[in-house]
Design a protein around this nucleic acid. Structure first.
Length: 683
DNA sequence: CATATCGTAAACAAAG
DNA sequence: TCTTTGTTTACGATAT
């Protein structure tokens, strides 16, 4: 290898970097802070804020509901007492009474599987956002479940009382009332069952690819959510995406789904009838069995992270009670947040909160779509700077997004087979690399078309790739380059590169021999990687010029692509501003204070900026650049949170702010991956 | 069809 | 001697 180019490269790099990296640093820092907060999404606090505003109203609504419900039940039972017959009409009445209640508890404001998948596919959300959403959803589900159980309990108890009144002292074998009651229950549970079946059906349809959601369809503002997802399905979905702990989660999934299904199915089965017939043992028994079962389940399921428990604090909206351990939290949860009017109301409020968030998300997605459309389609129009901000709810724009720029949105046409990497086929500046369904399939990498490459996408999907064993859609060269450029000194030893791979990508915690060989192979093969002898050995650096050299060739074939890139470059700064302004504009209190606002949007912003910078970078390399002041290396500056603190002796780097901010909090986290995974599964 | 790129495998050598 | 690091060649898949 030629060593002399090493110093050359370095001086090159630093010279270029100095161009315009200052702004990035500032942003970087703020983003970093934000990100570090994002580890523990404090959505509930924001929810609490909103809850305070809405609590009064919701409380009343809830009370009314409960009152109505009870009254209706009493009326019903009085009728039963009077008639003592199981008339078919009773069944007619019940839907009117029960359906609204139970359905209302089941359906509202729960993300449908379609929406989930859509979100995942479009990858408009960062994995962090998804997790936040997911947690919220799970919390909601739990609450809903509780409500349902409560409802059922209540019904049973009422009937029990009824029985005791009527047949005091007797041991009725086949009282007609009970048949009626059983019918009631059965009916209600059939409803639930039907809903579940529907959901499962939809899910399976989607999994088979029969029911596809057009990825180009922008952010349909929440359709009336007819189907909610039960927690098991949510988890299943999430697991499919992440597939990080398959065994455990599969187990817990089975539990929860079993729990639900048994509740529904068996209760409509005759065996349950006998249970109900024997009220003393049965109902009590069911209650005493059921409740702890669910508890232990939730304990199992969320022992690591209960949606309502974090950092020793109860995260029930507006609570924040301190619980030292999970057990005490459970106690607290059951005592303080038992099923009463207040909890019910809070649950409803939380639903509203989630709905609002979803609405907001839909809006922002639409807005993003409009911006993209505008920048792609109307690339000939030079002054479009603040315009995207005003396009908040323009349906027409989002329509044109899917129609006019088909290239910008990979359509994955008719793929009933395995959904193979609908990875950015288009030149979209804001890539929508869908990664969740990337299988072990061989494929072309987006790097080819996609200017922003790893730098941007890695940043965007960092969290995801960290936990999901999904092959990142980037070439080894891109990844290596990214690793090196993320390091404070812009240089890494081979081992450090390895560590970066294992730390950043769950995928590379397997088959070490293979990918390490590939890494070495790439390091040697590509001229852009320069080995520099050091006192302690050798480090690898990136020759940006060389790296840039390779890509214009690839891209040259596609004029529209270049056009788009240039366009995005032209609008880079304005768009950046627009984005941030948009975020500021959007930051309703709910967002800014506590909920998903800062971390996720910040993350998004960083990702977007990276994308844009990446595009810029490439345009520069094409020579058709209009702003020579900005350099490729600027884009290379890490906007990422996780830096490369591995080398304790390389601290005097130029990015002191960044590195110091990075080193302390992340250090042990880094060490985690450093040791184990490397040797992990070499055979 | 030719070519380029990429990933994988593997042989080999030098250094630690 | 074994492992790590680095270089090189070969081949298949895929995209242009």
């Amino acid at each position: 290898m030629m060593q002399e180019s090493g110093t050359e490269t370095k001086s090159n790099g630093s010279a270029i970097q100095n161009g315009a990296s200052g702004g990035n640093h500032l942003l970087e820092c703020s983003l970093r802070e934000v990100r570090s907060n994002g580890e523990t999404p404090s959505v509930e606090i924001g929810a609490a804020d909103l809850a305070h505003l809405q609590q009064q109203q919701a409380l009343q609504v809830a009370r009314q509901l409960l009152l109505q419900q009870q009254q209706q039940q009493q009326q019903q039972q009085q009728q039963q007492q009077v008639s003592g017959l199981k008339s078919p009409k009773r069944n007619d009445k019940q839907p009117a009474l029960q359906v609204p209640v139970s359905v209302a508890m089941m359906t509202p404001q729960v993300i449908t599987p379609q929406q989930m998948q859509q979100i995942l596919q479009q990858q408009v959300l960062t994995p962090q956002q998804l997790q936040v959403l997911l947690q919220q959803q799970q919390a909601l589900m739990l609450q809903q479940q509780q409500l349902q159980e409560f409802y059922k309990k209540q019904q049973e108890q009422l009937q029990l009382q009824l029985l005791q009144q009527q047949h005091a002292g007797k041991q009725p074998k086949e009282p007609q009332q009970q048949q009626v009651a059983t019918q009631q229950l059965a009916f209600q549970q059939q409803l639930l069952q039907m809903q579940q079946l529907q959901q499962q059906h939809l899910l399976s349809l989607q999994r088979q690819g029969l029911l596809t959601i057009q990825p180009g369809q922008p952010a349909l503002p929440l359709q009336p959510l007819a189907q909610g997802m039960i927690p098991a399905e949510l988890q299943q979905l999430w697991k499919e995406v992440t597939s990080s702990h398959p065994a455990e989660e599969a187990a817990s999934n089975n539990h929860s789904s079993l729990d639900l299904s048994t509740t529904c199915v068996s209760s409509s089965a005759p065996s349950k009838t006998s249970l109900i017939i024997n009220p003393h043992a049965s109902t009590n028994g069911q209650l005493s069995v059921h409740t702890p079962k669910r508890e232990s389940l939730s304990h199992e399921e969320h022992s690591h992270s209960h949606p309502l428990y974090g950092h020793g604090v109860c995260k029930w909206p507006g609570c924040e009670a301190v619980c030292e351990d999970f057990q005490s939290f459970l106690k607290h949860l059951n005592s303080e947040h038992a099923l009463d009017d207040r909890s019910t109301a809070q649950c409803r409020v939380q639903m509203q909160v989630v709905q609002q968030l979803e609405l907001q998300l839909a809006k922002d997605k639409e807005r993003l779509q409009a911006m993209m459309t505008h920048l792609h389609v109307k690339s000939t129009e030079p002054k479009a700077t603040p315009q995207p901000l005003n396009l908040v709810s323009s349906v027409t724009l989002s329509k044109t997004a899917s129609e006019a720029s088909p290239q910008s949105l990979p359509h994955t046409p008719t793929t009933p087979t395995a959904p193979i990497t609908p990875v950015t086929q288009g030149p979209s500046v804001i890539t929508t690399t869908s990664m969740h369904n990337v299988g072990p399939i061989r494929r072309r990498y987006s790097d080819k078309y996609n200017v922003p490459i790893s730098s941007a996408d890695i940043a965007q999907n960092q969290e995801f790739y960290k936990n999901a064993e999904v092959r990142p859609p980037f070439t080894y060269a891109s990844l290596i380059r990214q690793a090196i450029l993320e390091s404070p000194e812009k240089q890494l030893t081979l081992n450090e590169i390895y560590n970066w791979f294992t730390r950043m990508f769950a995928y590379f915690r397997r088959n070490a021999a293979t990918w390490k060989n590939a890494v070495r192979h790439n390091l040697s093969l590509h001229k852009c990687f320069v080995r520099v002898e050091n006192v302690k050995g050798a480090v690898w650096t990136v020759d940006e010029l060389e790296f840039q050299k390779r890509r214009p060739q690839k891209i040259s074939g596609n004029p529209s692509l270049i056009k788009n890139i240039q366009t995005s470059h032209t609008y880079c700064t304005p768009l950046n501003a627009a984005l941030q302004a948009s975020m500021a504009e959007n930051s309703i209190p709910l967002y800014t204070t506590a909920s998903m606002g800062n971390p996720t949007l910040g993350n998004l912003a960083s990702a977007m900026r990276e994308e844009l910078n990446g595009a810029m970078e490439h345009t520069n390399s094409n020579g058709s650049d209009s702003s020579p002041g900005r350099s490729p290396m600027q884009a290379m500056h890490p906007v990422h949170v996780k830096e490369e603190p591995l080398d304790p002796d390389e601290n005097e780097g130029p990015l002191s702010l960044v590195t110091t901010a990075n080193h302390s909090p992340d250090f042990d986290h880094d060490r985690d991956y450093e040791d184990e995974p490397v040797n992990e599964d070499i055979e």
